[in-house]
Nucleic acid binder design. Sequence first.
DNA 1: CTGGATCCCTATCGATACTG
DNA 2: CAGTATCGATAGGGATCCAG
Lengths: 112, 112
Amino acid sequence: MTHPLRIDDEECRRLAGVMEIIGKRWSSGIFLAIGRGAERFTEIEQRVEGLSARMLSVRLRELEAAGLVARTVEPTTPVSIYYRLTDRGAELLRSLQPMAHYARRWEPPLTR
Amino acid sequence: MTHPLRIDDEECRRLAGVMEIIGKRWSSGIFLAIGRGAERFTEIEQRVEGLSARMLSVRLRELEAAGLVARTVEPTTPVSIYYRLTDRGAELLRSLQPMAHYARRWEPPLTR
DNA sequence: CTGGATCCCTATCGATACTG
DNA sequence: CAGTATCGATAGGGATCCAG
């Protein structure tokens, strides 16, 4: 070993990888909303303040592609579409809880 | 209550606020690096693969403005500059650990 | 209801060059 | 060593309209 406080570059890269997905604007809010029970497109849209349908659509596809969210089509008339977390997504949600908790105490950012 | 799984809009907003800071490109890597002991500008730059001096400079100012990182000037010749986490930053780092751990097991994203 | 397609402006970022 | 200034390319994102 070189020294006791070694930086794990691999971990940095991987964290950055996860961040590139849920760190994008709206992503964490959408992810949290789904994780907390919002299943329908409109429901999620209303839940996250300021979110437009377009961005919700874009982000949902990204979250799907990342394997964090699953899209289910119910053959009703008209069809109903449901979003929910995958196992992988649920795992991420759990690892995100401490941050969400930390965020609760986040005082009005010092600047701006 | 409406239902057991209530969405906390305030929490969503606050998490989004924190994410807007450390979710940006390079931010989490830089933040992790400092949290793990990288103190000097050049040290951080080398630690985070692909990071340019310009982006490091920009991100450091953002992290400083957010009160997560402190910049210290040692009156040596020439002056030495050190970056380290504030208490607030250290707290965030702790809340980030589960995600960093989750990220370690993040398999090559399923798509693309 | 659940989005996709377009337009268009803005923010972001990498590369490069330069300074105290 | 520790940054800043500038520039051009590109990605992000809001508004709007349209469709299955």
